[in-house]
Amino acid sequence: MINFILLLVIYIGIYSILSLSLNLIAGYTGLLSLCHAAFFGIGAYTTAILMTGAKLDFWSAMLISGVISSLFGILIGLPTLRLKGDYLAIATLGFGEIVRNLMINWDSLTRGPMGINNIPSPNILGFKLIPSQKWQYVILVWLFVIIIFFILNRIMHSRFGRALSAINDDEIAALAMGINTTKYKIISFSIGAFFAGIAGSLFAVFNQSVSPNTFDFMLSIMILCMVVLGGMGNYLAVIVGTVIIVTAGELPRLLGFSNVIPPQTNQILFGLILVLMMIYRPQGILGRKRLDFGKIIQNSIKKEV
């Protein structure tokens, strides 16, 4: 039981990184990307290949995974980010499918549908993690969640983040304010992809194996659900959304109902969440967080008086 809960906590951590990074792309910048699972997968596969084939250490493999995911983000971003909303969604969906097809068919690199097994557990400062000791992974994963949360939060409270919000709100007005919208969208996309790659890397060493079908379209949808449920453009809310969705998904197993409830129930639930949230509460359960500059302004008004 305790192991199961720890497992749940680890998954929530990994998915939180995914939903946080998608929130930057979709929630703040307003780019509906349906290929987040692909970036996740590229990260996981890169780590798997580097650690089993090239025998690289975990940290280097993780960094390279992030960078490669990010490069793919730029690669897909350059041609498609000029597209509006739904076109972008379809193009990214297509990209995700291409990546999965390549994972299945590029046998020499990815070992095809079987995937890559026996990924060594990471060695951190001379301390080798043991897969059966789940708490070690809890610490590792959540350390990253906290760091990434901090970084993304910082980004959003900066001038860069403000520009992303502006692009989301009105792209033409943003251009007229001197913002290089294309560049910013691509940077946003590549940062999101970078962190998704990091999540993939963590997933690979925790799961110790990767296979193509993990990284399908449904996973992208699930991540999107977490963002939508929590509230687009609010990092804390997105983590709440992730906790709810992952827990709800695992609940049947937790309660021992997994034989009674068909596996599709989860997905039906995701679908319902999307439809109902859009109709009744498009801003998510917690809504969008807004920076309050009131105090700063009041202070500086006072100072002058």
Binding site: R162, A163, S165, A166, N168, A173, G178, R288, L291, F293
Partner: peptide, 18 residues
């Protein structure tokens, strides 16, 4: 064409972007 979902202050701040 204002940034409708942003506050008045944030709108002007965007003007200072570059």
């Amino acid at each position: 064409r204002l940034f409708k979902e942003m506050t008045v202050f944030e709108n002007v701040m965007i003007g200072r972007h570059f």
